[in-house]
Nucleic acid binder design. Structure first.
Length: 574
RNA sequence: CGGUCCGUAGCUCAGCUGGCAGAGCACCUGACUCUUAAUCAGGGAGUCGAGGGUUCGAUUCCCUCCGGACCGACCA
């Protein structure tokens, strides 16, 4: 009776659940279920070694059923893939009692249920490798129907594509869209590939604070939170750079971290409020060395994942085989605008921006203007991997001045498919210069740039003890994964992308209704008719009509309640 | 934040210039012992995103709101 808000199919599945229990079958058994094979193993090896597959046991979710009287085919999906099973009445029911087949298998089991099967592998007349089941065990009953996706010759029918469902109920997406699982396996492989390389070089994987008193190391708006015991504000980190460099000061030769960073900014196809960055810092190296190392990282990840450095993205082929093109930012701007900005000051740059219709604002300094020019006019052209090198000092406050070029720093970004994939420097280790750069940032922030960096005095203190010359690099793991798995939105490489809260229909609790004199058994029918709050109930003008609707609902849903008179209903509304 | 499009059964989607709410899959009943998008016969399933307006009558037209997608602006 309390189930009137469930769909017909959900009610039927709940009834199946209690029928199973009445038959003495636990729909959610506690015991370990020992399997000895995965679907993929059977597909790969059955034909060569049929004798090894006479007693198999596997478990998975029922994805499809084809019942033909006393025999049935079904598809079972485990973590490795799908395999067909064949269930024959007289093979699973040895005596006269055919309940396990006629009632349990045919009627009480559903698509979505998780079962274990024991049997032997054979090949059907149609040539499909199949498990002939001798015995099955219900491992978990599903009481919510799955979307039905059918497939023939690799073509999907009725595939679930609604992003709302796919991202919000990722578990459903993973069940019905098998290629989605593959993307996340690849994501893990990419991280594994990088970790292997770093560890084999003797670099140390570390963990640094996510809750930071000063959100340093990058320019971005942070999330802010509060620590009650200390009574201080804390920020969710926007970068871990300053902590990793403290560790280089502390004497580690190379440190790296796969870090979740958090930025309180816009969300779209390439931005999620939390995202993953791998940052690595290595002593006694410079950015030239780091470019070579970055090439090696990207090449290895691609080879480990695809066995090739030619990867498809959209309609393009990206060639990740080093060496990658290297071009300075000023040359890049010259290449795409024909303008040499290398000796220009702020006023001239602003005029150039205006003449090229590049948006700019008064609080932008020289560095920001150059950045803006590059972003608008150049960035999207770099489809094949390209290192953009030597960035303006103003936008690179943690970077060493260039050893020979004035006004620029030893910094590179790796652009692939028109997007920034990696960002690296020869790290600034001069504590006096660092302090000066922080002060410059402070002035920018006073000028109105809300993205200028905070000053981290402890970091400066660390540098005062002496940091070896160091090169550091960060790679956006989400974006690298998008690139290597050919996904066009960041939501497709994050298991649980940030979503707006699910809207929840307001609904008053039962007590609110009973206070008004509504009998408890009539609360659900009322809600089903749309009177989910007392306020809505009060708006009713014709109690007779409501009584009529309720009696109709009673009859339609076979609730078996005594009929209501208009007077009774009018009493609730008083 | 601006422009375009979308929201109908568990899922994928039709529904014309306003007139009884539709299909396929899924579900239920029945048939069928090698099927495979199984098939065949029958059945029931809906707050047509929410609220308001116009109308004798709104899923359809208008307004507001909510949610989503794509394209722009901002950020990694």
């Amino acid at each position: 009776m309390s189930n009137t808000n469930l769909s017909e199919q959900e009610q039927i599945r709940r009834e199946s659940l209690s029928e199973l229990r009445k038959l003495g079958i636990d729909p959610y058994p506690a015991a370990e279920y020992k399997t000895n094979v995965f679907a993929q193993d059977i597909h790969n090896n059955f034909e060569a070694n049929a004798e090894k597959y006479v007693e198999v046991c596997l478990a998975g979710r029922i994805m499809n059923r084809r019942i033909m009287g006393n025999a049935s085919f079904a598809e079972l999906m485990d973590s490795s893939g799908r395999i067909q099973i064949y269930v024959r009445r007289d093979d699973i029911c040895h005596g006269d009692d055919k309940t396990m087949y006629n009632t349990v298998f045919k009627r009480l089991l559903d698509i979505g249920d998780i079962i274990g099967v024991k049997g032997h592998v054979f090949k059907t007349q149609m040539g499909e490798i199949t498990v002939h089941v001798d015995e099955f065990t219900i491992l978990s009953k599903s009481i919510r129907p799955l979307p039905i996706v059918k497939e023939k010759d690799g073509v999907l029918f009725d595939a679930v594509t609604d992003p709302e469902m796919r991202y919000r109920q990722r578990y459903v997406d993973l069940i019905v869209n098998p290629q989605v699982r593959d993307v996340f396996r690849k994501r893990s492989q990419i991280i594994q590939s990088m970790r292997e390389l770093f560890n084999s070089n003797g670099y140390l994987e570390v963990e640094t604070p996510i809750l930071q008193p000063i959100p340093g190391g990058a320019t971005a708006r942070p999330f802010i939170t509060h620590h009650n015991a200390l009574d201080i504000p804390l920020y969710l980190r926007i970068a871990n750079e300053l902590y990793l460099k403290r560790l280089i000061v502390g004497g580690f030769e190379g440190v790296y971290e796969f870090a979740k960073d958090f930025r309180n900014e816009g969300m779209d196809r390439t931005h999620n409020p939390e995202f993953t960055v791998m940052e690595i810092y290595i002593a006694y190296k410079d950015y030239n060395w780091m470019m070579n190392f970055t090439e090696e990282i990207v090449k290895k990840a691609s080879l480990d994942l695809h066995g090739t450095t030619q990867v498809p993205y959209d309609d393009k082929i990206i060639n990740l085989n080093p060496p990658f093109k290297r071009i300075s930012m000023t040359d890049a701007i010259k290449e795409h605008t024909g303008i040499d900005i290398s000796s220009m000051e702020e006023d001239e740059l602003r005029k150039v921006c205006d003449s090229l219709n590049v948006p700019n604002s008064p609080e932008m300094g020289k560095g920001k203007l150059i950045d803006q020019l590059f972003g608008e006019k150049c960035e999207h052209h770099y489809i094949q991997p390209t290192f953009i090198i030597d960035y303006p000092t103003e936008t690179s406050p943690l970077t060493k001045m260039h050893r020979s070029k004035a006004g620029v720093t030893e910094r590179f970004e790796l652009m692939i498919n028109g997007k920034e994939i990696a960002n690296a420097y020869s790290e600034l280790n001069d504590p006096v210069d660092q302090m000066q750069r922080f002060m410059d940032q402070l002035r920018l922030s006073e000028k109105g740039d809300d993205e200028a960096m905070f000053i981290d005095l402890d970091f400066v203190r660390a540098l005062e003890y002496g940091m070896p010359p160091t090169s550091g690099m960060g790679i956006g793991i989400d974006r690298l994964t998008m690139l290597l798995t050919n996904q066009s939105s960041i939501q497709d490489v994050l298991l649980f992308p940030q979503m707006k809260p699910e809207k929840k229909a307001t609904s008053d609790p039962e007590e609110k209704y009973t206070e008004k004199g509504v009998p408890p058994e009539w609360v659900d029918p009322l809600k089903k008719l749309g009177y989910t709050t007392i306020a809505k109930l009060k708006e009713v003008e014709k109690p007779g009509k409501l009584a009529n609707d309720l009696n109709g609902c009673n009859k339609k849903n076979k609730l078996g309640l005594a009929g209501l008179s208009p007077e009774t209903v009018a009493g609730w509304l008083a």
